[in-house]
């Protein structure tokens, strides 16, 4: 939807963590984390539980201010949530309004952005088509499968026209087939919109399959342990990509990393 940005800002990282430390009382969750993510990059974040990957995502989304350090978005320091940064939560059932239909849930983001009512209908239909739910606008979340509900949440995030998509284990609660379908749909959508993606997952294969880069965090306190480039060609394919030697090698590297991080 957005034309590639060729202004000066294009050179600047879209998200920049500059020596972020986050502590709750005496407990340090994230320590001195620095990370730059470029425009259109898909960065997957993995790590054992307690490594602060979800917390890092919440800091990037402006939901929690860091104790020390700054997060910059397109060069500007983050001072709270922004509409061009969309967050896809794992628990789609809790993140959707049960009293609104699919269309109503997507509309919430448009209402928040002040889109005129006359324009909302068309935008909602476009977004539903984009996530493969054309014709389901009048269904309520409870009438939809988990995969469909997560698609609604993704559509609501896309309604924000985001420069950055923060995804917190978005497919973790779905069954394997649905998850693979959504992975490919997400890659197609991201390729089309050019959004920058910060994707938290505990599934190493998912990280390799989706990412341009995989960041592995170490726990107690959370810090970067590995920053692995993923040079698998795109478009990727659920069967062929996952069968390549490079895919298996990368998976092994990350597996070894997690093994070591946990001990």
């Amino acid at each position: 939807m957005r034309a590639p940005d060729t202004t000066v800002k294009a050179a600047a990282p879209v998200i920049a963590f500059d020596k972020i430390t986050l502590a709750f009382g005496a407990k340090t969750i994230i320590s001195d984390l620095s990370l730059e993510i470029g425009r259109g990059e898909i960065v997957c974040v993995i790590g054992p539980s307690g490594c602060g990957k979800t917390t890092a995502l919440r800091v990037a989304g402006g939901l929690i201010p860091p104790t020390k350090g700054t997060v910059r978005l397109l060069g500007e320091p983050m001072a709270g949530p922004r509409r061009d940064v969309a967050i896809v939560f794992q628990d789609y059932a809790k993140a959707l309004l049960p009293w609104r239909t699919a269309a109503g849930n997507i509309s919430l983001a448009l209402e928040a952005a002040g889109v005129a009512q006359s324009e909302r209908g068309d935008r909602i239909r476009d977004l539903l088509t984009k996530v493969g739910l054309a014709g389901h606008e009048d269904k309520y979340p409870t009438e939809m499968s988990g995969g469909m509900q997560q698609r609604i949440q993704i559509a609501r995030c896309l309604a924000q026209d985001p420069a950055v998509l923060l995804m917190d284990e978005p497919f973790g609660a779905l069954d394997a087939m649905t998850r693979q379908g959504l992975q490919d749909e997400m890659l197609a959508i991201v390729a089309e919109t050019g959004a920058t993606v910060f994707f938290v997952t505990h599934d190493l294969e998912e990280a390799v399959y989706l990412g341009d880069r995989v960041i592995g965090l170490l726990p107690h306190p959370g810090r970067i342990g590995i920053d692995q480039r993923i040079d698998l060609p795109r478009p990727r394919n659920q069967l062929e990509t996952r069968e390549t030697l490079e895919f298996l090698r990368l998976r092994r590297t990350l597996f070894d990393f997690i093994e070591k991080a946990e001990h």
């Binding site: 989304g61 949530p81 940064v85 939560f89 628990d91 809790k94 993140a95 928040a112």
Partner: peptide, 10 residues
């Protein structure tokens, strides 16, 4: 989570 969504959407 709903309140967080409302924050994220500003």
């Amino acid at each position: 989570r709903l309140l967080e969504v409302s924050r994220a959407l500003r």
